[in-house]
Amino acid sequence: MNVFHQTKVNFQEIVKEVIAWRHYLHQHPELSFQEVNTSQFIYDKLSEFENLKITRPTKTSVMARLIGAQPGKVLGIRADMDALPIQEQTGLDFASENPGVMHACGHDAHTAMLLGAVKILTSMQDQIKGEIRFFFQHAEELLPGGAKEMVEAGVMEGVDVVIGAHVMSDTPVGKIGFVYGPMMASPDGFNLKIQGFGGHGASPHQTVDSIAIAAQVITNLQHIVSRNIDPLESFVITVGKITGGEASNVIPDSVELSATVRSFGGDLRAKAKERIERVIKGVTEAHGATYELDYMYGYDPVVTDHEITKIVEDSVRELYGDDSILIQAPRMGGEDFSAFLNEKPGTFFMIGSRNEEKGIIYPHHHPKFDVDDDALQYGVNIFVNAAFKLLK
Rank of each mutant, 00 (worst) to 15 (best):
I77D: 02
E50C: 01
Q70G: 01
Y43P: 06
D82I: 00
Q70M: 09
F94D: 06
H103Q: 14
D108E: 12
S61L: 07
P85T: 08
H28Q: 11
L66K: 04
H107C: 04
D82T: 07
S32A: 15
V101S: 08
T55Y: 02
R56D: 06
P99L: 03
S47P: 03
L66P: 01
E50N: 14
T55D: 12
V74W: 00
Q27M: 15
R65Q: 14
W21Y: 15
Q89F: 06
G106A: 09
A20L: 09
S47C: 05
G100F: 11
P85K: 09
Q70Y: 11
I42Y: 06
L46I: 06
N37H: 12
L52D: 06
W21K: 03
M63P: 04
L84G: 07
L31G: 08
R22G: 02
T55K: 13
T58M: 03
A20W: 02
H103P: 04
D108Q: 10
K73W: 00
P71S: 03
F49H: 08
F41Q: 01
A83W: 11
L46E: 03
H23T: 11
T55Q: 11
E30C: 09
P29R: 13
G100Y: 11
Y43Q: 14
P99F: 11
L92I: 05
P29F: 13
E35A: 08
Q89R: 15
G106K: 04
W21V: 00
W21D: 10
F94A: 00
